[in-house]
């Protein structure tokens, strides 16, 4: 009997999701024993033409990580969708837009200007910018176009399942593979992780007071963080209450507040707005000026509440100036 075929692909992302596969460590042998990896550019030498040559729907499952922000990524998403029975958005970027999605606060032009000209670590005296066409020694290369707006995978192609996280934990990947192999899958569109907020599985859960109200929000470097006590109770903006569980509170166990990479639960339409609504509710004041002061010390609210989810939010991006 032939083994089911599996593909992994990397779009606009840091590569951390690929690490998850590597982090399966010896368990990867179990995966390889059960499936054939037919496409995994980061580790194995396959080319696009190999995929193009495959019959449609011949790949059982494709794990695609990263957001979509170039023409090439868009083409690959369409190609892999066509060749795969099941397409999984793997990790925060593919699911919600992720960190690259914060580029939606700018325009393409200002992004390029920053990266190639303004950035203090750059040496680019001639102000060279990548051009779409490049010729050298009679050879011509065409570079993909960078979009103005970063997209989630499901804004480009139909997605069957989502595996959350920045990056997803190896455990979630393994569970996803097992569910696929066992045909033991939830309804299409599901996020393959628990549907409760992180607090449910947080080791510090019991230390949160019943009636917690806050008069200041601290950033991690501004506090000597107690290792036992609920981070919210210490005035830290822990996104745990507004974030889907499933990571087993990895960051909190490292004494850092949750930053929300698992995204919202299925019941929340816009995770940033929801988190903002929840945290603003905790402000212990009825005085408008005082409230403004307390909320004012949240540095970078969009980057805090929409850190992983701006492209998937109701806002999607900063308004494009006409």
């Amino acid at each position: 009997m032939t083994k089911p075929k599996v593909a992994f692909y990397w779009c606009a992302a840091c590569g951390g999701c690929e690490e998850t596969v590597v982090d399966l460590a010896e368990q990867i042998l179990d995966v390889v024993a059960a499936v054939d990896i037919v496409f995994w550019p980061v580790a194995l030498d396959f080319k696009r033409k190999d995929v193009e040559a495959m019959p449609d729907k011949s790949i059982a499952a494709c794990f695609l990580n990263g957001a979509i922000r170039t023409t090439e990524q868009e083409e690959m998403a369409h190609l892999l969708r066509r060749k795969s029975q099941t397409l999984l958005a793997f990790g925060s970027c593919a699911q919600l837009g992720g960190i690259p999605g914060l580029a939606n606060l700018w325009q393409r032009e200002s992004v390029l200007e920053r990266v190639y000209q303004e950035c203090p670590s750059n040496v680019n005296l001639d102000g060279v910018r990548p051009s779409r066409q490049y010729r050298d020694n009679g050879h011509s290369v065409t570079l993909p176009t960078l979009f103005d707006t970063v997209l989630t995978l499901d804004q480009v192609v139909d997605v069957d399942y989502y595996v959350p996280g920045c990056p997803p934990t190896p455990k979630l990947l393994l569970e996803a593979v097992q569910a696929l192999l066992g045909g033991n899958l939830p309804p299409k569109g599901a996020v393959l992780a628990p549907d409760h907020a992180l607090c449910e599985e947080c080791p510090r859960k019991d230390t949160r007071p019943d009636k917690l109200m806050l008069t200041e929000f601290k950033r991690p470097h501004e506090a000597l963080i107690d290792e036992e006590k609920c981070l919210m109770a210490q005035g830290l903006l822990c996104m745990g209450p507004a974030t889907r569980g499933g990571c087993e509170a990895l960051c909190v166990k490292g004494n850092m507040p949750c930053t929300g990479c698992f995204g919202p639960t299925s019941r929340v339409k816009d995770s940033g707005a929801k988190a903002l609504s929840a945290f603003a509710s905790l402000v212990n004041s009825n005085d408008e000026k005082e409230i403004a002061g307390i909320l004012g010390n949240i540095a970078d609210p969009v980057g805090t509440f929409y850190r992983y989810s701006l492209p998937s939010s109701l806002l999607r991006r900063k308004r494009v100036e006409a």
Partner: peptide
């Protein structure tokens, strides 16, 4: 409250102007 999926984060407890919300210690 959707009890099955409530994470017991207690954000709601101080919100209620009518003191209608309580935290069930046994179920959390």
């Amino acid at each position: 409250v959707l009890e099955e999926v409530c994470s017991g984060c207690k954000t709601c407890i101080p919100m209620c102007p009518y003191s209608a919300i309580s935290f069930l210690e046994d179920k959390k």
